[in-house]
């Protein structure tokens, strides 16, 4: 007798919306000359600070902190770049062919070309186009981000069933979200989940990109970023 509310957001999704990290700033060093080294130093520093935030965020995903410390580490070591990339992609949805690495670091193709970021730019844009086409909403984005973490296919999981339970609860949250407010497309949950292979491909390219920069040794990298890069 009571019609369901128009946009019922599940308890998990509303929690994920609350714990969504604040905006982050790249703050490029004004004393450095413009060019590849400056751009990459800015991005590596940004990524290092974002990693600290991502680790804090992960602990707030319902069920994540109940996993063993080793399994928490394994999931983050597998999925951190997917989470970073997904965040950039979501920030970039309102832009035309630009990537919003941070509020104060928006890169278009020309800037990317001039600062050695073109490979990364070209790798991430197809994912932005894919999510634009789907008109992905914030509720869906925060849930997908948590799913990317839980579904990271780490080879080193100790308690596979516990990780499966985490995946199931997040999957259910996404299904409830779609069942609630998107009845015109019964396949939307599937469509959103089907974006995850491209996210993984894109993140793998980004890891490769930063790993070769690390090997070249020209760009300073903070310890956490290096540690996560080496874990891949």
């Amino acid at each position: 007798l009571h019609p369901p509310p128009l946009s019922p957001v599940t308890k998990i999704v509303s929690h994920l919306l609350v714990v969504e990290p604040e905006k982050i700033y790249a703050m490029p060093d004004p004393t450095m000359p413009d060019g590849d080294i400056k751009a990459l130093t800015t991005l590596c520093d940004l990524a290092d600070r974002e990693l600290v935030v991502i680790i804090g965020w992960a602990k707030h995903i319902p069920g994540f902190s109940s996993l063993s410390l080793a399994d928490q580490m394994s999931l983050l070591q597998s999925a951190w770049m997917e989470i970073l990339v997904l965040s950039i992609v979501f920030r970039s949805l309102a832009c035309e062919e630009e990537l919003v690495y941070a509020e104060d670091y928006v890169v278009d193709e020309e800037h990317a070309r001039l600062s050695g970021l073109l490979d990364l730019h070209v790798a991430i844009l197809p994912l932005v186009r894919r999510y634009k086409k789907l008109s992905v909403e914030k509720e869906e984005f925060v849930t997908l981000k948590a799913i990317a973490l839980a579904n990271s296919d780490s080879m080193h999981i100790e308690d596979v069933e516990a990780v499966q339970r985490l995946q199931d609860s997040l999957h259910e949250a996404l299904q409830d979200l779609e069942g609630g407010h998107n009845t015109e497309d019964p396949r939307r949950t599937g469509k959103l989940l089907m974006t995850l292979p491209l996210l993984r491909q894109t993140a793998a390219k980004a890891v490769q990109h930063f790993y070769s920069i690390k090997v070249q040794g020209k760009v300073p990298m903070h310890k956490l970023f290096l540690e996560m890069l080496e874990a891949k």
């Binding site: 604040e22 680790i55 983050l76 956490l224 874990a231």
Partner: peptide, 20 residues
Amino acid sequence: KEKHKILHRLLQNSTSPVDL
């Protein structure tokens, strides 16, 4: 774990939302 000590330490820290 020794190789991943920063991640380990950050995960062990309190779950306080201040990290966010």
